[in-house]
Nucleic acid binder design. Structure first.
Length: 948
DNA sequence: TTTCAGTCAACGGTG
DNA sequence: TTGACTGAAA
């Protein structure tokens, strides 16, 4: 895109006043937003510091900055301090600078200081929270009854985060501002919902949905004696409605005790977190909001002349309100697409955008109730719609709209007209209109998908647009398989490995729940204690029937080849070696095994991990469902597999939407757990009690069951998820299912064909995945000392005559693209030298590798972190290469310190290979070997810098 | 045709 | 737990 279309231009020019922008998929939103930003800061009296641009990910913020630089007078350096950031990082900045006394506004006698950390890891926070709950329940015997109803303390933490995202905060005495209103719920709203659900159907011959849903009232439950009997609540057979009085009866439940409980947990947890000197992401926004609300002077000094929020459909209630407090004028522009709101589980409120005006008025009124905080006119609101789509063919755009009106189940009702009315249809401006949209199902879905992939590659019927605008036959790299679940993607990947179809998974996987991890765990257990549950897994994997497994377990006379393997494993010295051997035996050589091995390698870098420790580590990983990021290298010509959520914002010429199977699109955004929160209904209490909860009839609460029945729980977000998946496709769209397609697929206007899976194993097409970029989990201990930190100031000094970082960045960029096989030609001497170097390396290349090296400084564990430019792996040797611009710029001695860190990290990762380190000077094309410093020397260096 | 009781299989991941 | 689906009963 070089010049804006009419709607885009209108948005770019409309810098002043309230704007709501409906920017559908592929309409050039980022392009337009960045141009608008440039337009705003291009005005005489406006500086970047006056313009707030909020994004939802750090990546998006970086991309925005990079793209803005090209279009305005400001360079990267001018924008580095500009408020182009996420809500979270903005709140963090505000609190770090002005948040010292923020907790006191809630009555908490503690302070936020520069040393207050952000707990990023949820597992770490959960551990803290569990400890807090132990203390709390000991200190509050009056809540024993309630605690008996809480199985998982983590669910309570979930509730607190949910409340924080809705702007409900506790104070010493009660609730902050109008928080209590939210908790009490709104009876009128509840009754509306109740009545609507309670309408008889089919002209009165069929019972209401509410009565139908209450059909399982009391099933497997044990209510208190005073609870109404099922027949009393629903009426006898033949009754069509639940009595209207039930609404009042249910809603009038006294929830004061429950509220007090939640309040005390919430308030004391805030105190606990502050006393431990940490905040979570939710609390970051909580305190920033409180601060901006209370400190009028501060708010006015911070508030921005222009405010833009990107991806507004992903914003939460508190973020909407924060935006209002941060806006100094009504030059507020929100950009988003309600059709792509799929993150309710991250507290995104699609209503922020679908009911923008109503929410704006309500929030402004709330904020201004006792003091004028939002001093500007909340009107008029100008709507701008971007309708020109630059990604997909018209056929795909039209087809995708069907997903938004397709019922997901026989009982599901969609108001198609209302949806259509709200929908801004997109107009494709694709050069070619050659689209295949098809569907098929087969019980061996994996094989069927692979067959299809092979059929597509090189097929003229599936031509895609090449870079030069012409049509060309598709390659593996043009195809993405999108699925709802990680599991399916992982399984498909495993099948692809079997058939040597080039495929790579992209995104988070639950590493310890994968087959390689399970088998490794099994063998570790066998080695440790000849454990039956180890043998059972191994035997089952080997294909023995349950009876045979049983037989072996009883006699303990295991197959001889397994005994031999066990002996072989016993001889190995480290768990890392055991892991490698197990993976090799079972032929796991793909991405998953790679990440598993790397993770284990990174573990034993701190200490020598024993088998028992590794067993517990894997068990904990399985329990917590810990995920690891896996990235495929972009340059490899392979099919991408990812979840729909992970694919948001991306585009692929050909999209295969797989696993469209029965019951595979359950309602999302569902509220589950002990105690949850819903605006019209308020807090509700757990209704299920296991044996460990004491006597059920004492604690159970029948009202909960009825309340829950009235919660809206629909498939809207699932429909949007489908929509997002489909609009990723540029040219072709294929739906696949196993035996039975789900209702979505059945009702979409596409014929479901049958296929005969026939994967051509000869065809191959390359390795399954290669060149993975792996982020190794950070070891324990404070992080943040990069090699550069070690060398700053007096330790490291830049020489004269350097050509600046911008130059280096460009060369790095080129190196990356070139190594990845992208079609880039060197444009200067530096790049030509880099190209020559890369051409001369024939092993596996890894680029931009994250490195973490734990060292001990004065008895304290410290982690040195950094990124190394290039790692070259070939038989028996691992080479680290770091790019530098030219020989004259810096002292080699300084680089030596930096590279030494990487050297030691890799030395541990690749215990069995020789590691070398070298510098490559791009200007001269000269490569210089580096003799690394010892670990002790590094540690003392780190110590001297940290002491400052 | 409507209602009921029993069965089956249950997700996504930024800051 | 939860809700859709299934087949049998009313």
């Amino acid at each position: 895109m070089t010049s804006p279309n009419d709607q885009q231009q209108r948005l770019i020019d409309s810098t002043d006043g309230l704007h709501v922008v409906d920017a559908g998929a592929g309409t050039g939103k980022t392009f337009t937003v960045t141009r608008r930003y440039a337009e705003i800061v291009g005005q005489n009296d406006v500086e970047p510091a006056d313009v707030l641009l909020v994004t939802f990910t750090n990546n998006a913020a970086t991309e925005m900055k990079e793209r803005i630089v090209g279009h305005c007078e400001y360079g990267m350096r001018d924008l580095s301090e500009a408020p182009i950031q996420t809500f979270h990082s903005l709140c963090h900045d505000i609190l770090m600078e002005h948040g010292f006394e923020a907790p006191t506004h809630l009555g908490i006698d503690d302070r936020i200081t520069g040393s207050t950390r952000i707990l990023e890891d949820e597992n770490v926070e959960q551990a803290q929270f569990r400890e807090f709950i132990r203390q709390f329940s000991d200190a509050h015997p009056e809540y024993d009854d309630l605690f008996r109803a809480v199985t998982e303390p983590d669910e309570l933490l979930g509730l607190l985060n949910q409340l924080a995202a809705k702007g409900v905060f506790p104070t010493t005495e009660g609730w902050y501002r109008n928080g209590e209103q939210h908790l009490d719920g709104d009876f009128a709203a509840f009754q509306d919902r109740f009545d609507e659900l309670n309408q008889p159907r089919n002209g009165g011959s069929k019972q209401s949905r509410l009565r139908s849903k209450l059909g399982s009232y009391g099933r497997d439950k044990c209510y208190r004696p005073e609870a109404p009997a099922k027949a009393d609540l629903r009426g006898e057979r033949g009754t069509k409605q639940v009595p209207a009085s039930v609404a009042q009866q249910v809603f009038d439940e006294d929830r004061a005790a429950l509220q007090q409980f939640v309040h005390d947990v919430y308030y004391e947890y805030l105190e606990f977190a502050l006393s431990r000197n940490y905040l979570n992401f939710g609390f970051l926004q909580l305190f920033a909001f409180v601060l901006l609300c209370e400190d009028h002077q501060l708010r006015e000094s911070i508030a921005y002349e222009y405010t833009m929020v990107d991806e507004f459909q992903d914003s939460s209630e508190i973020q909407f309100k924060l935006a209002l407090l941060l806006a100094d004028t009504n030059n507020v522009c929100v950009v988003g697409d309600w059709k792509q709101s799929i993150y309710s589980f991250q507290y995104a409120a699609v209503e922020n955008i679908t009911e923008f005006e109503a929410r704006l008025d309500r929030f402004v009124a709330e904020l201004n109730a006792d003091h004028e905080r939002v001093a500007w006119e909340a009107q008029p609101i100008t709507d701008i719609e971007l309708i020109e789509n630059y990604r997909s063919t018209q056929a795909i755009l039209d087809f995708a709209e069907h997903s938004l009106v397709t019922p997901a189940a026989s009982s599901d009702v969609v108001d198609g007209e209302a949806v259509q009315e709200r929908m801004v249809s997109l107009a494709s401006n694709a050069e070619y209109e050659n689209s295949q949209i098809e569907a098929f199902s087969h019980e061996d879905e994996h094989e069927a998908v692979l067959t299809k992939l092979q059929e597509i590659v090189g097929n003229e019927d599936y031509q895609v647009e090449a870079d030069d605008g012409e049509l060309r036959c598709p390659e593996y790299g043009d195809i993405a398989v999108l699925t709802r679940t990680r599991d399916f993607g992982r399984e498909l990947l495993a099948t692809a490995e079997d058939y040597a179809v080039p495929m790579a998974y992209e995104g988070g996987i639950e590493l310890f729940r994968t087959d390689p991890a399970k088998l490794l765990l099994a063998w570790l257990r066998i080695l440790e204690s000849d454990a039956e549950r180890g043998w059972a897994v191994v035997l089952e994997e080997a294909g023995y029937t349950l009876d045979e497994v049983q037989q072996y377990l009883e006699t303990e006379d295991y197959p001889s080849n397994m005994q031999t393997f066990k002996t072989e494993l016993e001889a190995l010295e480290t768990v890392g070696a055991v892991a490698k051997r197990v993976c090799t035996r079972y032929g796991y050589d793909g991405a998953t095994a790679d990440v598993l091995l790397t993770t284990i390698q990174s573990l034993h870098s701190t200490t020598t991990v024993t088998r028992g420790e590794l067993i517990r580590f894997i068990e904990r990983g399985i329990e917590s469902g810990q995920t690891q990021e896996v990235h495929a290298s972009a340059g490899v010509n392979s099919v991408t597999v990812q979840t729909i959520h992970a694919a948001k914002g991306l585009e692929h010429p050909i999209v295969v939407l797989a696993n469209m199977n029965e019951r595979r699109f359950p309602p999302s955004g569902g509220e589950s757990g002990t105690i949850t929160f819903d605006e019209p209904i308020g807090i509700r209490q757990r209704n299920v009690f296991g044996e460990d909860h004491g006597h059920p009839h004492i604690y159970d609460n029948w009202r909960t069951d009825v309340l829950r029945t009235c919660l809206p729980r629909g498939y809207d977000e699932e429909r949007r998820l489908l929509y997002v998946a489909m609009t990723r496709a540029e040219s072709h769209l294929v739906f696949t299912a196993g035996e039975t397609p789900n209702t979505f697929l059945e009702k979409l206007p596409v014929e479901i064909e049958s296929v005969v899976p026939d994967v051509d194993t000869e065809r191959g097409g390359g390795t399954t995945q290669a060149n993975l970029q792996i982020s190794v989990p950070t070891p324990d201990g404070p992080v943040g000392h990069s090699p550069h930190t070690l060398m700053r100031d007096d330790v490291f000094e830049a020489g004269e005559g350097g050509r600046g970082t911008e130059f280096g960045t460009q060369t790095h960029e080129f190196a990356e693209q070139y190594a990845l096989g992208k079609d880039v030609a060197p444009s200067n001497d530096d790049e030509r030298n880099v190209a020559a170097l890369l051409d001369s390396l024939d092993g596996e290349l890894r680029l931009e590798e994250d490195m973490y090296l734990p060292v001990t400084v004065d008895g304290e564990q410290v982690t040195i972190s950094g990124i190394v430019d290039l790692v070259h792996i070939r038989d028996g040797i691992v080479e680290i290469v770091d790019f530098k611009t030219d020989l004259g710029r810096h002292g080699e001695e300084e680089y030596r310190k930096q590279l030494s860190v990487y050297y030691h990290v890799l030395d541990e990762w690749f215990g069995d290979r020789a590691v070398t380190a070298s510098l490559f000077y791009t200007a001269e094309g000269e490569r210089v070997g580096i003799e690394p410093l010892s670990r002790r020397e590094l540690a003392s260096l780190a110590g001297s810098v940290m002491a400052e």
